[in-house]
Nucleic acid binder design. Sequence first.
DNA 1: AGTAATTTTGTAATCATTACAATTATATAT
DNA 2: ATATATAATTGTAATGATTACAAAATTACT
Lengths: 133, 133
Amino acid sequence: MNIPNYLAEHDIKPSYQRIRIFEYLYQKMNHPTVDLIYKTLAPEIPTLSKTTVYNTLKLFVEKGITSTVTIEQNEVRYDALVEEHGHFKCNICGEIKDIPLEIEKLKISSIKNISVEQTQVHLIGKCNKCLTQ
Amino acid sequence: MNIPNYLAEHDIKPSYQRIRIFEYLYQKMNHPTVDLIYKTLAPEIPTLSKTTVYNTLKLFVEKGITSTVTIEQNEVRYDALVEEHGHFKCNICGEIKDIPLEIEKLKISSIKNISVEQTQVHLIGKCNKCLTQ
DNA sequence: AGTAATTTTGTAATCATTACAATTATATAT
DNA sequence: ATATATAATTGTAATGATTACAAAATTACT
Ligand SMILES: [Mn+2]
Ligand SMILES: [Mn+2]
Ligand SMILES: [Zn+2]
Ligand SMILES: [Zn+2]
């Protein structure tokens, strides 16, 4: 994955900050909050502003290369994986994992005559690691 | 449904404000925000404080007679229906409808060896009413 | 009634996010 | 290469939802 190219292909000028922020999202795949991205990158990019992180993520979402995940109220998380998938959050360790979804199963059983454009599935519980220790 | 009894059964002293707030939730079933509850009840209960609405809903959630629904970031909604079910939000008229869920289908296909305690399913799109006009 | 416990209220504090204007960096034209 | 226009980044202030907190009001108990 060539990040500058990927950004350019999606009509985003690949500035240094944008590259670094997308690189973080894409490599970690950890569904970070704005604050985590900022705190992680700020030491390496001393001039980085939190506003830039907000602006950049907003742009990524508009251009379709990033999705948002809102499981807990008052914390939005960001995800470089934009294909439809679900999330599992462990309420012990806090980790958020991707889960595959068979959306069809869901849609068949729900109300007819609606047009569904977006599907959010969030499971919350305890992960295997936290269960066995 | 006798609301004072229902509150008392769940270890909640049925004060006037609590009764009115739960009555609103239960009768409208409209997944309101704190602000909508406050704005609706304030004219009828002139002394009502928004803090009371917050406090009361927090208590209802703790005692298990109300659930929260967070579809859009930065707006939490409340629901007197606590049995597991999904939600569909129309992004034209804004209405939020309940949808039945076959959770088993969902769980079978997802990661094994986890304990799922809560399931949130949110569909977003256009409702039948808005599609046909 | 008198006292204690609980609930409600209003105001101030907090925290995430957005608005905005100034600065810096990049692209284009001369 | 220099000047000019355009775009991106930054820092600070504003907004808005939620929470903290202490005073006032209500309710329960003796
Ligand atoms: Mn994901
Ligand atoms: Mn509902
Ligand atoms: Zn865990
Ligand atoms: Zn609609």
